[in-house]
């Protein structure tokens, strides 16, 4: 598998979006604006993103 430029950018975008949403969930839990518990992915996003982007 050779990644094209767009594919690399897709991976990058998915990584950054995942980081941003994950931090949003963590933040909202701290503010009492998210229910239950949150087990953050921060630092460990690449396996899920890499496995599911293509």
């Amino acid at each position: 598998m050779r990644l094209k430029k767009e594919q690399k950018l897709t991976l990058y975008r998915n990584l950054v979006r995942t980081r941003a949403f994950d931090q949003l969930f963590s933040r909202r839990l701290g503010l009492g604006k998210l229910l239950g518990f949150w087990h953050p992915a921060e630092g460990g996003e690449a396996p899920g993103v890499g496995a599911c982007s293509f």
């Binding site: 949403f21 994950d22 604006k33 998210l34 087990h39 953050p40 992915a41 899920g48 599911c52």
Partner: peptide, 25 residues
Amino acid sequence: AVRGHGLPHLISKGVDPKYYLAEHC
């Protein structure tokens, strides 16, 4: 997988994460 409750997988496979945020709220 459990970390991020599957957010990395959902987002990467094209699911709009706003529905999961609403679920978690």
